[in-house]
Amino acid sequence: MKSVFGKMFGAVVLTAMATPALAHTGGAAGGLSSGLVHPILGADHLLAMAAVGVWSAAQPAKQAWRGPVLFVGVLAVGALLGVNGLSLPLVEPGILASIVVLGLMIAAARVLPAGAGLAAIAVFALFHGHAHGTEAVGALAGYMAGFMIASAALHATGYGLGRLAGSLKHGLAGIGLAIAGSGLLLAGG
Rank of each mutant, 00 (worst) to 15 (best):
G166N: 04
G189L: 01
A114G: 08
A139L: 10
L126I: 06
A178Q: 05
S34N: 13
G115T: 09
S151N: 00
A18T: 15
G181H: 04
I106H: 03
L47M: 04
G174K: 02
A57Q: 07
G176K: 06
G6N: 14
I149K: 08
P20A: 09
Y159H: 11
T134L: 12
L112E: 01
P93Q: 02
K2N: 13
A114S: 10
W55P: 07
Y159D: 08
M8G: 02
A150L: 00
K2C: 11
A120E: 04
G146R: 03
H130S: 04
V52R: 03
V12H: 13
L36D: 10
G73P: 03
V37N: 12
H45R: 12
A153P: 00
V111P: 00
L96H: 12
L126F: 03
G166C: 01
V54R: 05
F5Q: 03
H170K: 12
S151Y: 03
V77S: 04
G160W: 06
G181D: 03
H132V: 04
L46P: 08
V123T: 06
G26S: 02
S182D: 01
P89G: 06
T25A: 12
A141T: 13
A16T: 11
T19M: 15
W55N: 11
G129R: 09
G85M: 01
T19R: 15
G171L: 01
A173F: 15
H155Y: 09
G117K: 03
A150F: 03
V137N: 05
F147C: 04
Y159P: 11
L186W: 02
L164K: 07
M8V: 07
L102S: 12
K62G: 15
L88N: 06
L36W: 02
L118V: 01
A173P: 05
A178C: 10
V83D: 10
L81E: 02
H128E: 00
A173K: 12
L47R: 04
S34F: 02
G188L: 13
I99Y: 07
G189C: 14
S3C: 02
L32C: 04
A180Q: 07
G94K: 08
L168F: 06
L36P: 03
A97T: 10
S34D: 15
K62C: 08
